[in-house]
Protein backbone atom coordinates (compact mmCIF):
# COMPACT_ATOMS: atom_id res chain seq x y z
CA UNK A 1 0.00 0.00 0.00
CA UNK A 2 1.33 3.41 -0.92
CA UNK A 3 1.18 6.08 1.71
CA UNK A 4 -0.11 9.26 0.14
CA UNK A 5 -0.46 11.44 3.22
CA UNK A 6 2.12 11.45 5.93
CA UNK A 7 1.93 14.01 8.73
CA UNK A 8 4.46 13.87 11.53
CA UNK A 9 4.30 15.72 14.81
CA UNK A 10 2.20 18.64 13.63
CA UNK A 11 1.91 21.41 16.18
CA UNK A 12 0.17 24.74 15.94
CA UNK A 13 -0.38 27.43 18.53
CA UNK A 14 -2.59 30.48 18.21
CA UNK A 15 -1.48 32.92 20.86
CA UNK A 16 -1.30 30.91 24.05
CA UNK A 17 -3.84 28.34 22.86
CA UNK A 18 -2.43 25.12 21.48
CA UNK A 19 -4.80 24.18 18.68
CA UNK A 20 -2.94 21.11 17.43
CA UNK A 21 -0.51 19.32 19.67
CA UNK A 22 1.73 16.72 18.07
CA UNK A 23 -0.61 15.13 15.57
CA UNK A 24 0.76 12.41 13.33
CA UNK A 25 -1.30 10.74 10.68
CA UNK A 26 -0.60 8.56 7.71
CA UNK A 27 -3.12 7.60 5.07
CA UNK A 28 -2.61 4.97 2.39
CA UNK A 29 -4.16 4.76 -1.05
CA UNK A 30 -7.64 3.33 -0.80
CA UNK A 31 -8.18 4.46 2.74
CA UNK A 32 -10.96 6.77 3.83
CA UNK A 33 -10.08 8.28 7.17
CA UNK A 34 -12.87 9.78 9.22
CA UNK A 35 -11.49 12.67 11.19
CA UNK A 36 -13.59 13.08 14.31
CA UNK A 37 -13.55 15.36 17.27
CA UNK A 38 -15.59 17.89 19.21
CA UNK A 39 -15.77 21.46 17.91
CA UNK A 40 -12.48 23.22 18.40
CA UNK A 41 -10.54 19.98 18.79
CA UNK A 42 -8.18 20.95 15.98
CA UNK A 43 -9.65 19.06 13.02
CA UNK A 44 -9.74 21.98 10.61
CA UNK A 45 -6.39 23.31 11.75
CA UNK A 46 -4.78 19.92 11.14
CA UNK A 47 -6.35 19.71 7.69
CA UNK A 48 -5.18 23.21 6.85
CA UNK A 49 -1.64 22.23 7.72
CA UNK A 50 -1.78 19.14 5.53
CA UNK A 51 -3.10 21.17 2.59
CA UNK A 52 -0.29 23.68 2.98
CA UNK A 53 -2.64 26.54 3.78
CA UNK A 54 -1.33 26.92 7.29
CA UNK A 55 2.28 26.50 8.30
CA UNK A 56 2.81 24.29 11.36
CA UNK A 57 4.99 25.58 14.21
CA UNK A 58 6.77 22.24 14.16
CA UNK A 59 6.27 18.99 12.32
CA UNK A 60 6.07 18.07 8.65
CA UNK A 61 3.45 16.97 6.19
CA UNK A 62 3.92 15.11 2.93
CA UNK A 63 1.36 14.71 0.21
CA UNK A 64 2.09 12.21 -2.53
CA UNK A 65 5.70 12.07 -1.36
CA UNK A 66 6.22 15.85 -1.60
CA UNK A 67 6.89 17.95 1.46
CA UNK A 68 4.09 20.48 1.71
CA UNK A 69 6.45 23.27 2.80
CA UNK A 70 9.60 22.54 0.87
CA UNK A 71 7.87 21.69 -2.39
CA UNK A 72 4.41 23.22 -2.09
CA UNK A 73 3.56 23.29 -5.78
CA UNK A 74 4.09 19.54 -6.29
CA UNK A 75 2.32 18.66 -3.06
CA UNK A 76 -0.66 20.91 -3.80
CA UNK A 77 -0.94 19.49 -7.32
CA UNK A 78 -1.72 16.06 -5.81
CA UNK A 79 -4.38 17.44 -3.58
CA UNK A 80 -8.07 18.26 -3.77
CA UNK A 81 -9.42 20.29 -0.89
CA UNK A 82 -12.88 21.24 0.26
CA UNK A 83 -12.42 23.90 2.94
CA UNK A 84 -14.92 24.25 5.77
CA UNK A 85 -18.12 25.88 4.55
CA UNK A 86 -17.33 25.15 0.88
CA UNK A 87 -16.26 28.68 -0.07
CA UNK A 88 -16.70 29.69 -3.72
CA UNK A 89 -16.99 32.84 -5.80
CA UNK A 90 -20.71 33.53 -5.48
CA UNK A 91 -20.96 35.72 -8.55
CA UNK A 92 -19.60 33.02 -10.88
CA UNK A 93 -21.75 30.46 -12.64
CA UNK A 94 -20.93 26.87 -11.65
CA UNK A 95 -19.33 26.11 -15.03
CA UNK A 96 -17.07 29.18 -14.95
CA UNK A 97 -16.00 28.52 -11.38
CA UNK A 98 -15.08 24.90 -12.02
CA UNK A 99 -13.32 25.88 -15.20
CA UNK A 100 -11.34 28.52 -13.28
CA UNK A 101 -10.25 25.97 -10.68
CA UNK A 102 -9.39 23.46 -13.41
CA UNK A 103 -7.21 25.98 -15.21
CA UNK A 104 -5.49 27.00 -12.00
CA UNK A 105 -4.77 23.32 -11.50
CA UNK A 106 -3.12 23.22 -14.89
CA UNK A 107 -5.73 21.35 -16.93
CA UNK A 108 -5.49 21.98 -20.67
CA UNK A 109 -8.48 22.64 -22.84
CA UNK A 110 -9.52 19.16 -24.02
CA UNK A 111 -8.78 17.55 -20.68
CA UNK A 112 -10.57 20.35 -18.86
CA UNK A 113 -13.68 19.92 -20.96
CA UNK A 114 -13.67 16.19 -20.27
CA UNK A 115 -13.32 16.72 -16.58
CA UNK A 116 -16.02 19.39 -16.52
CA UNK A 117 -18.42 17.06 -18.28
CA UNK A 118 -17.55 14.28 -15.85
CA UNK A 119 -18.10 16.54 -12.84
CA UNK A 120 -21.45 17.75 -14.16
CA UNK A 121 -22.51 14.16 -14.50
CA UNK A 122 -20.92 12.53 -11.50
CA UNK A 123 -21.55 15.20 -8.91
CA UNK A 124 -24.92 15.91 -10.59
CA UNK A 125 -24.57 19.55 -11.35
CA UNK A 126 -26.07 19.59 -14.84
CA UNK A 127 -29.26 21.21 -13.63
CA UNK A 128 -27.50 24.24 -12.15
CA UNK A 129 -24.55 24.32 -14.55
CA UNK A 130 -24.94 27.92 -15.71
CA UNK A 131 -26.46 29.36 -12.56
CA UNK A 132 -24.46 31.69 -10.30
CA UNK A 133 -23.25 29.86 -7.20
CA UNK A 134 -24.80 32.40 -4.81
CA UNK A 135 -28.23 31.44 -6.16
CA UNK A 136 -27.80 27.75 -5.31
CA UNK A 137 -29.16 25.78 -2.38
CA UNK A 138 -26.79 24.67 0.34
CA UNK A 139 -26.76 21.14 -1.02
CA UNK A 140 -25.76 22.23 -4.49
CA UNK A 141 -23.14 24.60 -3.12
CA UNK A 142 -21.56 21.73 -1.21
CA UNK A 143 -21.55 19.69 -4.39
CA UNK A 144 -19.86 22.49 -6.29
CA UNK A 145 -17.23 22.44 -3.54
CA UNK A 146 -16.74 18.70 -4.03
CA UNK A 147 -16.55 19.06 -7.81
CA UNK A 148 -13.97 21.78 -7.37
CA UNK A 149 -11.88 19.45 -5.19
CA UNK A 150 -12.21 16.60 -7.69
CA UNK A 151 -11.78 18.48 -10.96
CA UNK A 152 -8.15 17.43 -11.47
CA UNK A 153 -8.74 13.86 -10.25
CA UNK A 154 -6.31 14.21 -7.35
CA UNK A 155 -4.69 11.35 -5.47
CA UNK A 156 -5.45 12.92 -2.13
CA UNK A 157 -8.74 14.38 -1.12
CA UNK A 158 -9.25 16.42 2.03
CA UNK A 159 -12.85 17.24 2.82
CA UNK A 160 -13.72 19.44 5.76
CA UNK A 161 -17.30 18.61 6.74
CA UNK A 162 -18.58 17.73 3.29
CA UNK A 163 -22.07 16.82 4.52
CA UNK A 164 -22.59 19.74 6.88
CA UNK A 165 -25.99 21.28 6.25
CA UNK A 166 -27.18 18.66 3.79
CA UNK A 167 -30.50 16.90 4.10
CA UNK A 168 -30.54 13.12 4.67
CA UNK A 169 -30.88 12.31 0.95
CA UNK A 170 -28.05 14.60 0.02
CA UNK A 171 -25.90 13.12 2.77
CA UNK A 172 -26.60 9.69 1.42
CA UNK A 173 -25.59 10.78 -2.08
CA UNK A 174 -22.43 12.41 -0.81
CA UNK A 175 -21.44 9.22 1.00
CA UNK A 176 -22.06 7.17 -2.10
CA UNK A 177 -19.88 9.52 -4.08
CA UNK A 178 -17.07 9.27 -1.55
CA UNK A 179 -17.32 5.50 -1.54
CA UNK A 180 -17.22 5.42 -5.34
CA UNK A 181 -14.04 7.44 -5.68
CA UNK A 182 -12.35 5.93 -2.63
CA UNK A 183 -10.48 2.91 -4.06
CA UNK A 184 -7.81 4.90 -5.88
CA UNK A 185 -7.37 7.79 -3.49
CA UNK A 186 -6.44 8.70 0.03
CA UNK A 187 -9.32 10.56 1.57
CA UNK A 188 -9.57 12.44 4.84
CA UNK A 189 -13.08 13.47 5.82
CA UNK A 190 -13.83 15.49 8.90
CA UNK A 191 -17.28 15.19 10.34
CA UNK A 192 -19.42 15.38 13.45
CA UNK A 193 -21.70 12.69 12.22
CA UNK A 194 -20.66 9.36 13.59
CA UNK A 195 -22.91 7.21 11.45
CA UNK A 196 -21.09 8.74 8.51
CA UNK A 197 -17.83 7.32 9.75
CA UNK A 198 -19.36 3.89 10.08
CA UNK A 199 -20.88 4.22 6.62
CA UNK A 200 -17.89 5.38 4.57
CA UNK A 201 -14.67 5.32 6.53
CA UNK A 202 -12.17 2.50 6.71
CA UNK A 203 -10.50 4.19 9.65
CA UNK A 204 -11.55 6.61 12.34
CA UNK A 205 -9.13 9.06 13.89
CA UNK A 206 -10.52 10.87 16.89
CA UNK A 207 -8.86 14.01 18.11
CA UNK A 208 -9.59 15.96 21.26
CA UNK A 209 -7.87 19.08 22.55
CA UNK A 210 -5.41 18.93 19.67
CA UNK A 211 -4.27 15.35 20.22
CA UNK A 212 -5.07 12.06 18.55
CA UNK A 213 -6.90 10.00 21.16
CA UNK A 214 -7.96 7.08 18.99
CA UNK A 215 -6.94 5.71 15.60
CA UNK A 216 -8.52 2.43 14.48
CA UNK A 217 -11.20 1.00 12.24
CA UNK A 218 -14.67 1.96 13.41
CA UNK A 219 -15.30 -1.69 14.20
CA UNK A 220 -12.20 -2.01 16.36
CA UNK A 221 -12.98 1.22 18.15
CA UNK A 222 -16.37 -0.09 19.11
CA UNK A 223 -14.93 -3.53 19.83
CA UNK A 224 -12.39 -2.13 22.25
CA UNK A 225 -15.20 -0.98 24.51
CA UNK A 226 -17.25 -4.08 23.99
CA UNK A 227 -16.24 -6.50 26.72
CA UNK A 228 -19.69 -8.06 27.08
CA UNK A 229 -19.66 -7.21 30.77
CA UNK A 230 -22.30 -4.53 30.74
CA UNK A 231 -26.06 -4.74 30.61
CA UNK A 232 -28.30 -2.08 29.28
CA UNK A 233 -31.75 -1.46 30.65
CA UNK A 234 -34.43 0.79 29.28
CA UNK A 235 -37.01 1.91 31.77
CA UNK A 236 -40.20 3.65 30.72
CA UNK A 237 -39.96 6.22 33.46
CA UNK A 238 -38.47 9.69 33.51
CA UNK A 239 -37.83 9.88 37.26
CA UNK A 240 -34.20 9.15 37.21
CA UNK A 241 -33.13 9.36 40.86
CA UNK A 242 -35.88 7.17 42.21
CA UNK A 243 -35.42 4.67 39.41
CA UNK A 244 -31.74 4.33 40.16
CA UNK A 245 -32.54 3.84 43.83
CA UNK A 246 -34.92 1.05 42.95
CA UNK A 247 -32.57 -0.71 40.55
CA UNK A 248 -29.50 -0.61 42.77
CA UNK A 249 -30.42 -3.39 45.20
CA UNK A 250 -31.61 -5.57 42.33
CA UNK A 251 -28.36 -5.53 40.38
CA UNK A 252 -25.86 -6.92 42.79
CA UNK A 253 -22.33 -5.66 42.46
CA UNK A 254 -22.93 -3.65 39.30
CA UNK A 255 -21.95 -0.05 38.81
CA UNK A 256 -24.86 2.06 37.59
CA UNK A 257 -24.62 4.73 34.94
CA UNK A 258 -27.40 6.71 33.33
CA UNK A 259 -26.65 6.79 29.59
CA UNK A 260 -29.43 9.01 28.33
CA UNK A 261 -32.95 10.18 28.92
CA UNK A 262 -35.30 10.43 26.00
CA UNK A 263 -39.04 10.68 25.48
CA UNK A 264 -39.84 9.77 29.04
CA UNK A 265 -37.63 6.73 29.15
CA UNK A 266 -34.21 6.26 30.70
CA UNK A 267 -31.32 4.15 29.49
CA UNK A 268 -29.29 2.75 32.36
CA UNK A 269 -26.07 0.83 32.12
CA UNK A 270 -25.06 -1.84 34.61
CA UNK A 271 -21.33 -2.47 34.54
CA UNK A 272 -20.15 -5.69 36.09
CA UNK A 273 -16.63 -6.60 37.05
CA UNK A 274 -17.18 -10.10 35.82
CA UNK A 275 -19.43 -11.90 33.46
CA UNK A 276 -22.88 -10.43 34.09
CA UNK A 277 -25.97 -12.25 35.21
CA UNK A 278 -28.48 -13.67 32.85
CA UNK A 279 -30.47 -10.80 31.35
CA UNK A 280 -33.75 -12.61 31.75
CA UNK A 281 -33.17 -13.06 35.47
CA UNK A 282 -32.58 -9.33 35.84
CA UNK A 283 -35.64 -8.54 33.81
CA UNK A 284 -37.83 -10.73 35.96
CA UNK A 285 -36.47 -9.18 39.11
CA UNK A 286 -36.99 -5.63 37.88
CA UNK A 287 -40.52 -6.40 36.74
CA UNK A 288 -41.46 -7.92 40.03
CA UNK A 289 -40.27 -4.70 41.66
CA UNK A 290 -42.87 -2.86 39.59
CA UNK A 291 -40.40 -1.09 37.39
CA UNK A 292 -41.69 -0.28 33.88
CA UNK A 293 -38.96 -2.24 32.11
CA UNK A 294 -38.97 -1.87 28.34
CA UNK A 295 -35.81 -3.65 27.41
CA UNK A 296 -32.94 -5.54 29.00
CA UNK A 297 -29.96 -6.73 26.99
CA UNK A 298 -26.20 -7.09 26.73
CA UNK A 299 -24.78 -3.65 26.05
CA UNK A 300 -23.14 -3.24 22.64
CA UNK A 301 -21.42 0.15 22.58
CA UNK A 302 -22.02 2.42 19.64
CA UNK A 303 -19.36 4.61 18.06
CA UNK A 304 -21.07 7.53 19.73
CA UNK A 305 -20.40 6.05 23.16
CA UNK A 306 -16.76 5.47 22.32
CA UNK A 307 -16.49 9.00 20.98
CA UNK A 308 -17.91 10.49 24.15
CA UNK A 309 -15.72 8.30 26.25
CA UNK A 310 -12.40 9.16 24.58
CA UNK A 311 -13.09 12.85 24.01
CA UNK A 312 -14.40 13.71 27.45
CA UNK A 313 -11.81 11.80 29.39
CA UNK A 314 -9.12 14.22 28.32
CA UNK A 315 -10.65 17.33 29.91
Amino acid sequence: MTTLVEARGLKKRFGDMTAVDDVSLSVARGEVVGFLGPNGAGKSTTMKMITGFLEPDTGTAEVGGHDVWRDPTSAKAKLGYLPEGAPAYGDMPVADFLSFVGKMRGLRKAELNNRLAEMADRVRLTEVWSRPIEALSKGYRRRVGIAQALIHDPDVLILDEPTDGLDPNQKHEMRNLIREIAPNKSIIVSTHILEEVEAVCSRAVIIAAGRVVADATPRDLVGSKDDGRAIQIRIGSPEEASVIEKIKPLADGAELEVMERMNGSTRVLLRYNDKPEDTRAIETRLKSADLPVEEVGIYRPRLEDVFRDVTTRIH
Binding site: T73, K76, L79
Partner: peptide, 14 residues
Protein backbone atom coordinates in the same frame (compact mmCIF):
# COMPACT_ATOMS: atom_id res chain seq x y z
CA UNK B 1 -14.21 37.43 4.08
CA UNK B 2 -15.71 34.68 1.93
CA UNK B 3 -12.99 32.13 2.67
CA UNK B 4 -12.11 31.64 -0.99
CA UNK B 5 -8.57 32.63 -0.08
CA UNK B 6 -8.28 29.09 1.25
CA UNK B 7 -9.00 27.72 -2.22
CA UNK B 8 -6.71 30.18 -3.87
CA UNK B 9 -3.76 29.55 -1.59
CA UNK B 10 -4.01 25.76 -1.89
CA UNK B 11 -3.69 25.88 -5.68
CA UNK B 12 -0.42 24.52 -7.05
CA UNK B 13 0.84 27.96 -8.08
CA UNK B 14 3.22 30.50 -6.61
Amino acid sequence: RSGTIELLMTMPVA
